[in-house]
Amino acid sequence: MMKQTQLTIKENKKIAANTFRLMLCGDCSAMRGAGQFINILIPGKFLRRPLSVCDYTADSLCIIYKTVGEGTQILSRLQSGETIDALVGLGNGFDLTKNCSKPLLIGGGVGVPPLYKAAKDLIAAGKSVSVILGFNTSDEIFYTEEFEALGCRVFLTTADGSAGTKGFVSDVMDAIDYDYFYACGPKPMFEAIEKKAHTGGQYSFEERMGCGFGACMGCTCKTEHGNKRICKEGPVLEREEILW
């Protein structure tokens, strides 16, 4: 169950172009798994901002976010020691209990962060994990070494070819041996993955949200299993249930 809590900023540091890592500490006991998100108040802004969780413990959270608008710009200027009002433990998260031994994680840009905790947990479960990290340009790249340090096989792509394989994440899928996949990133990336994927998998979706906890019906989508709220029954949907 989600918790509303005050988290203290330990670090808020630029790690790539327009990309920041936010380390928070406080009561994070509401987190139940990889792929969940938090929804934070930004000083001067009315709606909260939903941010996927990169890694967590019972008393700490790591968030990696991109400055895409005014809200995240304000967030990027907050300093260590300041506190943030957060709803913690939102969404369903990835189902990592699927019967597979060689899962493939596919992240595009700021869709990469939630896959980090997923990789950590899958490796702890004894699985052989491959990861495709896709970015637009080399200056946007983050966390390749961190994924390698976990023991993942990492494949890097950039759209402009400035690092790794030139192209999109879907362009390297055929060369990888996998029996299940987890993906997070923009929708066009999902559509490209759909054309290549030959196994079951899960996609983590992004949508504009009002509340983030299921009250406002702002982020509903249609699925094979009826209407689902991206914030509550999502953000992770099974491949089979998605209506493209």
Binding site: F46, G71, R208, G210, C216, C219, T220, C221
Partner: peptide, 10 residues
């Protein structure tokens, strides 16, 4: 079902 998304703006 309601309207298409985005349904929310700040």
């Amino acid at each position: 079902y309601g309207n298409a998304t985005p349904r929310i703006a700040e």
